[in-house]
Amino acid sequence: MDYAKAGNGPSRSSGKPPFLFRFPSLGLFRRRRSRTYIFPTGFGFAFGGMSLVLLMMAMGYGNNLIYLSVFALISVAFCSMYVTNENVRRLDVGLSRFGPIFSGEDNAVSIRVTNSSGSDSHDLSLSLAGTKNQTPLFVASSRKSMGTPIVWRPLRRGLTRFPRVKLESRFPFGLLRSWKNCDEQTQVIVVPERKGDPQFPSLEGAGLERGSLGLFRDHRPFQSTDSPRRVDWRATAKYQELLVKNFEGSEKVPLHFSWEQTKGLSNFEARLSQLSLWLSRAEDMGFSYSLRLGTTQFPEAQGMEHLRQCLEKLALAVEGDFE
């Protein structure tokens, strides 16, 4: 059997997802569904008003055919209420695993919508409480689970409660709006905003130079974050394009970051932001790196788990911790 293809449900064998804590320790995808709410929309109220006017008209004229029209209208609207409610009720909403969340930046957070029923759910949208961000309308197909990205911009670092996720739909006619809130009491570690000088500190900058001593692989176009010293002027002249040399990764020398390297910055938060930027860049560029924060030492390593540990330390730091 080809089990690789069978993964249409969210993985349940994961360990602790990076950057995600939950209190209390409920399952990430709870079987107990949260309550579904339903309320008429503005259009629904207008429809109700119109039905009332038509009912008055039917009574005034004593006209059974108008009565029939009004009752047909009301019945369809009433049945649509059930559909609207059911469209949202049958879904489960939960957070997916996601990468580091930086404060002051737009982070794409994946919300998992699971439809374990036999019917599709239509015209859904997700939003976060306290924000105006809303996803475009989407369909949750029957017996499928899907991740839908939504933008979240936390304003401060540290342990932050993830905003309530609201799943909403006005299906089928827009007369009623039904929604459910996914409020899992999830605490998320928001790491410091990436801000400061993108250049690695001078000592480690030498490491970059040494990195260039590795085996040459190919050229690539210059990017704004590249040091001008990496430009291969000869190749640039030949191809009429700013090119830098790419070297085999294994040849990259490790970077060593420390709290002292940011002492030029007076503000505590600015120092955290600077380190956050360097760490994140180093991970992106494929360097291995270490971090020393006062007495705390994160030995040289690479990968998301290492980055998570480093950034978490920065995220939860209190002024004076690293002196």
Partner: peptide, 20 residues
């Protein structure tokens, strides 16, 4: 919706209103 519409039609009292 049809059963509800029929039920409403049969059950809704045909009041003769003053604003006829």
């Amino acid at each position: 919706s049809a059963p509800l519409a029929i039920l409403l039609f049969l059950a809704f009292p045909r009041i003769v209103v003053p604003w006829a």
